[in-house]
């Protein structure tokens, strides 16, 4: 199941995990976008490495798609929204920073505990356990990010980070699709990003902020 250098994959996993942990504590929107961009570039590098190892042209294109859509297009879109509405800070959380860090530590601890060992045993060889543990940690921390953050932009970045974590799992498990299917998935993600940005702008125009906790028109 080892298609490419484990060490490079470890670096990609580490970038993902560290970026989602910092996404939880950063208050600046621009920092969140930079972290997501770094994370997406790392994922693309992972895909390029896999493409090189497997001599797969299809995977190479998948890497390019990921880099263009997540590393470039989404970053440009998000930056434009931040600049247009001068939204430097809005990534506030329901829990304060120390509590957020405690929960993040607990989630990482759970992923690294014996609880999920049977899952790792069933999915990957022992030398890849540390990768699965790291990716699962990133997945849990991202889910927590979605719940804990009040900012709409952070929620969008959270969804895209979750997607990155799933891509990494698929890569690790050796799951490959046809190029057409990868193009369809990339197109789907691109449309999702465009719609999410459209909604970000709508939210700001109608509510005056990206803070989702200010939205309470649906209480009946």
């Amino acid at each position: 199941m080892i298609f490419f250098a484990v060490h490079l994959m470890g670096l990609v996993m580490l970038t993902l995990l560290v970026s989602v942990i910092f996404l939880n504590i950063t208050k600046r929107n621009i920092s969140a976008v930079i972290l997501f961009t770094l994370q997406s570039i790392a994922i693309s590098m992972g895909i390029f490495a896999a493409a090189w190892q497997e001599h797969s042209v299809e995977l190479f294109f998948v890497g390019i798609f990921t880099l263009v859509v997540k590393g470039i297009i989404s970053s440009v879109f998000f930056r434009r929204v931040i600049v247009r509405y001068s939204l430097q800070f809005s990534g506030t959380t329901y829990l304060n920073t120390p509590l957020t860090l405690i929960v993040v530590a607990l989630l990482v601890g759970i992923a690294y505990s014996q609880l999920f060992t049977p899952l790792y045993v069933a999915l990957v060889p022992p030398e890849l356990f540390f990768l699965m543990k790291g990716i699962l940690s990133a997945l849990f921390v991202t889910l927590f990010l979605m719940v804990n953050k009040k900012g709409a932009l952070s929620q969008i970045v959270g969804i895209l980070s979750l997607e990155n974590a799933i891509i990494l799992i698929a890569l690790l498990l050796g799951l490959r699709h046809s190029l057409q299917l990868e193009i369809a998935i990339t197109f789907d993600i691109t449309v999702w990003i465009v719609i999410a940005v459209v909604f970000l702008e709508m939210l700001y125009r109608q509510f005056g902020s990206f803070d989702v906790s200010t939205m309470n028109n649906l209480k009946e």
């Binding site: 979750l162 698929a170 509510f207």
Partner: peptide, 30 residues
């Protein structure tokens, strides 16, 4: 406002849930 709020809720909840479904599919497909 209320429609936009409902749409946002729909977008985020459904996207998140569908990603989890995707993860489930990836685990089985492996």
């Amino acid at each position: 406002q209320s429609g936009t709020e409902a749409a946002w809720k729909y977008l985020i909840i459904n996207s998140l849930s569908l990603l989890l479904a995707f993860l489930g599919t990836v685990l089985l497909s492996a």
